[in-house]
């Protein structure tokens, strides 16, 4: 028996969520008195792979063959499940993000394993296996019992602290000739930001809503974000109006994010918006309407006009950086 964790990389570097995941898998393995096997897919350097050992991986399997260069759900599911079988893994853990959502369901069927997505804790009981997950878009939690021998879990972002430890993992390259079936997904074009901070991986997010009044007023939001090393986001009406790209839309039907700090500017805080941001550690609200629901979700609030408040904040951050 082992715990298998799929650690995703972005351009050869592991994401913060991958370290969260390994830390989580390590505690899970302790509960079951077993080891953590991390699977990395795509080209990642030895040095980067070794980092996973610092978070509790006992063994790292690297599948770097060219056929895994693009995410073909079926090929990836076949690969992960064959590794799971070989390693005798009874617990398979992925991150609850785009990739986890793409792969966990297929793994569940292939391995005849119950799936619990968006788990927020370690299991409260190992037999029966019972675990807590988010439901109703973060407005409640459910305790779920898994009845199958093998289990697949996806871990909600920011729900588990990264724990560093002294560990050295053994790295094993997966044979290149392993065939995982035909690739039926072909990528023709990739449009990817470079150098900018990923919204879903950002520690700080500065987000604008309809209260910004015009797409021309986004300058101060972008300036504040840049000073804070933050990603920018927006509310649904803003992306629907085309003021900002839909990739920035955070909320129930947009991106679900969980940064350390979420600064909502000119966002009233509709329940659907809050569903996408309520897992943030701290929420700051800046809004002209003191009765806006965003203040109920916020830790800190400023009632006032964004175009007057933002320059003050920008100035304050500049001063903070100097001192």
């Amino acid at each position: 028996m082992a715990v298998l964790v799929y650690t995703e990389n972005w351009d050869g570097k592991f994401k913060k969520t991958s370290f969260e995941l390994v830390s989580y898998a390590n505690k899970l393995a302790e509960m079951f008195n077993t080891n953590v096997v991390a699977l990395s897919i795509g080209p990642v350097s030895e040095e980067e792979l070794a980092l996973l050992g610092n978070y509790g991986a006992d063994k790292i399997i690297s599948a770097a063959a060219g056929q895994f260069k693009i995410l073909d759900n079926k090929v990836y599911v076949n690969l992960i499940s064959s590794v799971a079988e070989k390693e005798n893994a009874e617990l398979i853990v992925l991150s609850h993000d785009n990739t986890g959502k793409a792969l966990a369901p297929g793994l569940s069927v292939k391995l005849k394993a119950g799936l619990v997505s968006g788990v927020v804790e370690l299991p409260s009981s190992t037999d029966p296996f019972t675990i807590k997950k988010k439901v109703f878009s973060g407005n409640a939690f459910a305790r779920v019992e898994v009845k199958t021998g093998i289990k697949v879990l996806t871990l909600a972002k920011n729900s588990f602290e990264v724990v560093e430890k002294d560990g050295i993992a053994q790295i094993e390259a997966l044979q290149d000739e392993v065939s995982q079936g035909d690739i039926t997904t072909k990528v023709n074009e990739v449009n990817k930001q470079t150098g900018k901070i990923l919204l879903t991986d950002a520690e700080i997010v500065v987000s604008g809503g309809r209260g910004m009044k015009s797409p021309d007023n986004w300058g101060p939001i972008e300036e504040l974000a840049e000073l804070l090393g933050a990603a920018t986001a927006c509310s649904r009406p803003v992306s629907d109006e085309g003021w900002r790209p839909h990739q920035e839309h955070t909320g129930q039907t947009g991106k679900i994010i969980a940064p350390n700090l979420y600064i909502a500017v000119g966002i009233s805080g509709a329940i659907q918006h809050l569903a996408g941001v309520s897992s943030s550690r701290y929420i700051v609200a800046i809004n002209t309407d003191k009765d806006a629901p965003i203040f109920e979700a916020a830790d800190y609030g400023i009632v006032g006009d964004a175009m007057k408040v933002l320059p003050q904040l920008i100035q304050a951050v500049k001063e903070m950086k100097v001192s």
């Binding site: 569940s108 409640a140 898994v146 800190y300 609030g301 400023i302 003050q312």
Partner: peptide, 26 residues
């Protein structure tokens, strides 16, 4: 089914928001 829900809970209520005067945004 592979899984079953055994119970629900609501999140802990959040402490009230701390309001900062807009003239003193810093």
């Amino acid at each position: 089914a592979y899984t079953g829900i055994t119970g629900f809970e609501l999140p802990e209520p959040k402490p009230p928001c701390k309001i900062i005067e807009s003239e003193n945004a810093k």
